[in-house]
Design a binder for these strands. Structure first.
Lengths: 220, 220
DNA sequence: CAAAAACTAGACCATTTGGTCAAGGGTTGG
DNA sequence: CCAACCCTTGACCAAATGGTCTAGTTTTTG
């Protein structure tokens, strides 16, 4: 249909674009938009600076492309949940998803956080609207669950905020967490943290914890 | 003892220093360190740029002075809690304190968050050590509570991380929260959010909620 | 295999910006 | 009242940095 399908992923252009985006993700997460040097992105990608500007029209263009990539991570199973689904399972999976993103894409999470903290100057009105619409639909599902007695009467907004806050924290504040624990979060630690979190939130909503998320506190 | 006690608060120098710090807090929170212009701080403080550099040796000097101010907010009642105290009351108050900071000093919270996200490049080793020491002592108290049966067996680290994450979220992500709720968080909303949060966390720890933090879900 | 398209890359530039300087104005204490 | 000190301010500067230009090289395509 269109010849711009450069997602072939093995053309020289696609490979370089990918290298640059990966390098940019690290740099922007580490220094913010203004603090990031195009030269440093180039160095990290092992390409000359001019090359970076060749593939992306400008620093801002690169940033926006990266941001778009990142926002696509925000979609998941919870998006299609309905009142018929079991809240315990849906919420537990949602939390697990979010935690998995924090573990595998911490820099993406950080860039998003920086963007929001600074007043979301680069998030398009389209994204905001879409997000607000998503939110309204999710809130409605949660309210239906409550009406059906599947869930105790929690405020849907605060519930979702709490989930985001805690999950994001493991990515955004990883430096502090590592400092305070004396060691970085390993794969197993994330599993534990996830179980803890699921237990906390679900217990707070008066839900039974799905088997696979039970903590092994008591070994009897 | 020393004549450098310019905390008189009404000398011309003290007043200007204060104005500059307040302006800097807004600007740094909004644009990050690298993205902030000294000129903009000066404009906001309604002083010429040279004046800002006169009171603080450099942009970095100003930032560090501000950061020091901000870190002093992190002290509170929980610092002196012991195993004899009641966990429900101590934790509830701690959460309420943190939420109050998020409400009244959101920019301070944001600057701290930016600092951590970017790898804490300006937090002194001294602060980190102090913080780690504080953490160890708090963890110990929580473990004693658990040993005494005052608290169900939660991981103290995850418990504290959860509290910080959720409380900070209301400051750092205020833009998103406003966007999704369709209106900014008012004083009363913070009270509700705090009660919700206290209920969630305490319930998760198997604690009874102190009267003053009860939500008014059921009016009977 | 030749021409077009995609890519690489050094040299270079305009602008922005943190910071300096020097000169002058106010205030205060002795 | 004067001298020391604190404060104010416009003019100016050097360095950093995003971005352009031009020219050459490689790859693709007809």
């Amino acid at each position: 249909m269109k010849q711009k399908e450069y997602q072939k992923d093995d053309t020289i252009g696609a490979v370089n674009r990918h290298k640059i985006l990966a390098a940019a993700e690290v740099e922007f997460a580490l220094h913010g938009f203004a603090g990031t040097r195009v030269q440093h992105i180039a160095d990290r990608a092992q390409l000359p600076k001019t090359n970076v500007l060749y593939y992306f029209r400008s620093k801002e263009g690169l940033y926006l492309a990266l941001l778009e990539d990142i926002l696509s991570l925000w979609n998941g199973e919870f998006d299609e949940a309905t009142a018929e689904d079991e809240p315990a399972q849906v919420l537990a999976n949602y939390i697990a998803d979010k935690m998995e993103i924090s573990r595998t894409r911490p820099d993406a999470s950080k860039i998003f956080a920086l963007e929001i903290i600074n007043g979301a100057p680069n998030l398009s009105g389209f994204f905001k609207d879409q997000h607000a619409t998503w939110m309204k639909a999710r809130v409605e599902v949660i309210e239906q669950w409550i009406a059906l007695g599947k869930l105790s009467a929690v405020d849907p907004y605060y519930l979702l905020f709490n989930i985001w806050a805690t999950c994001q924290h493991y990515a955004d504040f990883s430096v502090q967490i590592t400092e305070l624990r004396g060691k970085p979060m390993e794969s197993q630690d994330f599993i534990d943290a996830t179980k803890n979190l699921v237990e906390l939130i679900l217990k707070g909503c008066g839900l039974k914890i799905p088997d696979e998320f039970h903590t092994n506190k008591v070994k009897s």
